[in-house]
Simulated assay, not measured.
Amino acid sequence: MKNFLAIFNGTPEAVEKSGWNALSESERNKRSQAGIAAWHAWMENHKAQIVVAGGPIGKTKRVSGKGITDAHNAICGYVVVSADSHDAAARLFDKHPHFAVLPGEAVEVMECMPVPGA
């Protein structure tokens, strides 16, 4: 089995395109609660494959040779899963509540490679 980092992406543009902002506050709250429940169910259904439960991601700081600055990206959460292959790991997120119920944009899945020379 290999480990895979899954990054949940979402942008203000994706939220707008989904029609989420056009919903009433009551409907957004209702769908948010349904999305959270579906997300917890997904976690429960895949608990055997979950290596690190992860969670939501807050604001970003970029650290470089030029110092530390505020930064923006589309990352809004993560989880680490175990699977036999990259395709099998990706299939775990087919119809995930992040974008099937909530206004998230996508989930990017990448293999966690070993550190060279370790």
Rank of each mutant, 00 (worst) to 15 (best):
G67R: 12
H98M: 02
P103I: 01
A90Q: 13
H46L: 12
L23K: 03
H72P: 01
F93I: 02
H40G: 09
K66S: 15
N3W: 09
E27A: 14
R31K: 15
P56T: 10
G55N: 03
Q49C: 13
A6F: 12
S26E: 02
L5Y: 09
A74P: 08
V79A: 10
E27V: 07
S64L: 07
V115Y: 12
G117W: 09
G77I: 01
M1Q: 07
V107K: 03
G104D: 00
T60W: 08
F8W: 07
A118Y: 14
N3S: 10
M113A: 12
K30I: 00
H96R: 06
K95W: 07
C112M: 12
L5W: 08
A34K: 02
V109T: 06
V115P: 03
E108D: 05
N3D: 15
N29V: 02
V51I: 11
G35D: 01
A22K: 15
K61H: 14
A106C: 12
F99R: 06
I57D: 01
C112D: 09
G10N: 03
K2D: 06
A90E: 06
E105I: 02
A34N: 02
A41T: 09
A90F: 15
T69G: 10
A6S: 06
C76R: 15
S32R: 03
V52T: 08
V52L: 15
I57C: 12
C76Y: 09
D70S: 14
K66A: 15
K59L: 09
G65I: 06
K61R: 13
A53M: 10
H40P: 01
M110W: 12
G58P: 11
I68M: 05
M43W: 06
A48L: 13
G54N: 04
Q33C: 10
T69H: 13
A38W: 09
A53F: 12
K61C: 08
H40R: 13
D87L: 14
A71V: 10
E108N: 07
A53Y: 08
